[in-house]
Design a protein around this nucleic acid. Structure first.
Lengths: 162, 162
DNA sequence: ATTTCAGTTCATTTTGAATTGAACTTTCGA
DNA sequence: TCGAAAGTTCAATTCAAAATGAACTGAAAT
């Protein structure tokens, strides 16, 4: 294998690894990142078959991963000229991928904990006098954190914007 | 069970759930969050035995979880008066817990990807002329993201500060 | 209309992280 | 110094999430 090809292969492998880690960091399946990494490294659009071959994953994983990435707007699908197959390209701006990951993971949890906090506030009057003060303090602390996290989220989106 | 006790139990269960989710969000074992949540809800310091009983987890998990939380400075341990056992209290400021979670999870990955990116830059000269331009563009994109994330991290720490 | 190829679905299997629990060590009181 | 209780360790187990792959659907060429 030529030195150049070897280097290209390393590049591809490293991009796959970087994005696998990133997906994992955000609580997404590593395969999702791996697929994106492969497309990100590729100079030409790749078919699903290419993805299966080069990553050594199953057709099922490839199909699901590609669809999810498309939903996040991290990749684009287009029909291959005069074939019955499709071909995929990574959007090189990382924003769609990152904000998709954030959306998937952070947002549901923030709204979930907002609901919990509301319910707990409703519970306060049922507590004994002494317990109530303590519970109020604790709820306040969590609520403060929660508000700050909610503030941070759009800020993070902005900073990560390319 | 009195209405008040029932409410106190609900409060405890909800705090446990909130912090389990939080731990999970940051890629830590849910049990770690659960233990913190229990101590956070408690008005009195609890022993390891208490934690085992109330959460229904094993001594092993409790021991390891308590130690980790102590290392993060999220809880404090103190010797019980005239006993040979210890007793634990949650620090009510959430900062130690949150920044501990961030440290555990984000920092190692940021330095890991910094290393990868450095290695990839060294690889560039070995690529063919055409491939090099494309690889440079891609590396630049990731590096830009990486720098922004590195900027965001201390900012997040500051915002989450109580 | 039929065949064939691309892609999807989802029940089963795999994998890896979290948890357990039993053996071990440490600590303190008698 | 010994015994007992507290706490730790880590190999084995459990469990949930991810990946697989075989059966299926749809779409295009003949």
């Amino acid at each position: 294998m030529s030195e150049q090809l070897e280097a290209q292969t390393t590049l591809e492998r490293e991009f796959v690894a970087i994005f696998s880690d990133l997906a994992d960091l955000f609580g997404n399946p590593p395969s999702l990142g791996a697929i994106y990494g492969l497309l990100f490294a590729a100079e030409q659009p790749l078919s699903m078959e290419d993805v299966v071959q080069r990553l050594g994953i199953s057709k099922g994983s490839a199909s699901q991963g590609l669809r999810q990435l498309e939903e996040l707007d991290a990749i684009t699908r287009c029909r291959e000229n005069n074939g019955r197959s499709h071909v995929y390209t990574a959007r090189l701006e990382l924003k769609p991928l990152l904000s998709g990951f954030l959306r998937n993971r952070l947002v549901p949890r923030l709204t979930g904990s907002a609901n919990r906090l509301r319910d707990l506030n409703d519970l306060l009057p049922r507590l004994s006098e002494s317990g109530r003060a303590s519970a109020e303090l604790r709820l306040e602390r969590i609520t403060k954190w929660h508000d700050r996290a909610s503030t941070l989220l759009p800020l993070a989106q902005e900073i990560l914007e390319v």
